[in-house]
Write a protein that binds this DNA or RNA. Structure first.
Length: 280
DNA sequence: AATAAAAACAACCGCATTTAG
DNA sequence: TCTAAATGCGGTTGTTTTTAT
């Protein structure tokens, strides 16, 4: 007993759409709309196609305001940030990128962006030059919430760069090397009225997307804070989140045992001041 | 110039969720 | 409330195009 087919497979065309078919579908939908019934639409529009195929063709290719062509750096950044936070939930990611479809983003990720990121992290692990990102090894992934069923690290962080707050145009990113592949978490720069600027890994966009979905994932973040008077003594604040079951002590341990990246990076001591760590 | 390999893109398939009767 | 149909989603496959040899 298999699943009932959605249409009569013998009498529907498969494969690439011809310009004539595109025109028929476009014309019909522009005049009559979808009528809320994709299954019935091909018959009405005079198409020998499955309703699902029509829907896909319309959503991914024919509907107005679809963007084709290269992705911008901003789009790259949003995709990376969201992927690192919510994983391969392409429809949610697509919702943040007007004009892009989930299929388009999925293809782009699988064929280009993923490789681009892998290349970046590999290059950095080979070179001793100061990177604009922080490379974490897989050992450091234990910050991931153990209650999460998500197959990717929610958040991990094991140290900081010897850095200064970068320009707003080019905030650094974290590349996480996981068993399943590499993930990149972008950062954003925040300014408080009575506070110094700091970097936040994971973004509000990502947090919002995670919150709006049914996922138990969170938008938790770690802040790297820089004192105005001394760039070389940042503070890392752990933004406590109930769904991230990792104690401050564990974080301290994690940080002190994972000083594995960047030649110019070193950590001597950690002091805990209630909910934050001060590095000396 | 011909061919093979890789990359890019479009579309399909089946499962999960939502909706309507 | 229950059930079947419709829809949406994400993984995967197939086809076309581009690049390398």
């Amino acid at each position: 007993m298999g699943r009932a087919p959605c249409c009569d497979k013998a009498n529907v065309k498969k494969g690439p759409w011809s310009p004539e078919e595109d025109a028929k579908l476009k014309d019909y939908i522009e005049k009559h709309g979808t009528g809320g019934n994709w299954i019935a639409l091909p018959l009405k529009a005079g198409l020998k196609r499955c309703g699902k195929s029509c829907r896909l063709r319309w959503l991914n290719y024919l509907r107005p305001n679809i963007k084709h062509g290269d992705f911008s750096d901003d789009e790259d950044r949003i995709i990376c940030t969201l992927f690192s936070t919510i994983g391969s939930r392409w429809s949610i990611i697509a919702a943040q990128l007007p004009g892009r479809t989930d299929n388009d983003i999925k293809n782009y990720w699988n064929t280009k962006l993923k490789k681009k990121l892998m290349g970046m992290s590999q290059k950095r692990s080979q070179n001793s030059i100061t990177p604009n990102s922080i490379l974490l090894d897989h050992q450091s992934l234990s910050l991931t919430s153990s209650s999460s069923s998500l197959p990717y690290p929610t958040l991990s962080f094991t140290g900081y760069q010897n850095y200064s707050i970068p320009s707003t145009n080019n905030p650094p990113s974290v590349v996480i090397q996981g068993q399943e592949g590499n993930y990149m978490m972008n950062s954003s720069i925040h300014h408080y009225q009575d506070h110094n600027s700091f970097l936040r890994f994971g973004s509000e966009v990502a947090a919002a997307a995670a919150a709006s979905s049914s996922s138990s994932d969170d938008g938790s973040s770690i802040f790297i804070n820089r004192f105005e008077d001394d760039q070389q003594k940042p503070i890392i604040n752990y933004d406590q989140n109930p769904s991230l079951d990792c104690s401050l002590e564990e974080i301290k341990q994690l940080i002190s045992t994972n000083l594995t990246f960047n030649n110019n990076f070193f950590l001597d001591e950690i002091k805990i001041e209630e909910d934050k760590f001060t590095y000396y």
